[in-house]
Amino acid sequence: MIKKFQTPVGPISKIVGKSIVLIGDDIDTDRIIPARFLKCVNFDNLGQSVFEDDRKNLKGKHPFDLESNKGSSILIVNSNFGCGSSREHAPQALLRWGIRAIIGESFAEIFYCNCIAIGIPCFTLPKKLVKNIQENKNLNNSLCEINIKESTFKSTFFNFDLEIKTSSKNMFLSGEWDATSTLLANKKLIEKKLNDLPYTKF
């Protein structure tokens, strides 16, 4: 029986799973999910199409096709990951493939916010450390654990501290990353703001 996909809900404090390495700078959201897959009115089937063109091009040798990476949930990337289009389809496709956290040198702004909004914490590390991790042959065989509160990564072979923006960390720990209800709680303030803005009367 196919397991039904579960979107993250509520506070997120820990991510446990295998790591998958994807090497490359400036990997844009068109590559993560090519535009033709955006022709949909829900995100349900995006997981299978993640990195479609890159994967076809590498004929089974793309990290997302390797048998040894099956079931991985922590993605290790390089610099400016997720640049380009604002399409949330990109992190949604990663999420549906199985990714639950991303560690990288840096992330593009809108991609980073989209990840927060759907419950994927993103952590940064210096270039050299990312390289060391990506080159470690044992990474694949190790169960890794990310502790968001402590901002730590632990595995059989290495442990290190992760960096995450304080506001993002707080949002994951409290569950506030799913922002709608938090925002709605200020209903009165929102209505006051609408009335106070000069241009809403023009």
Partner: peptide
């Protein structure tokens, strides 16, 4: 913004 934030703007204008 991404789609989750589109949802938030629709629901809360913020």
């Amino acid at each position: 913004i991404g789609t989750s934030q589109v949802r938030d703007v629709l629901a809360t204008q913020t």
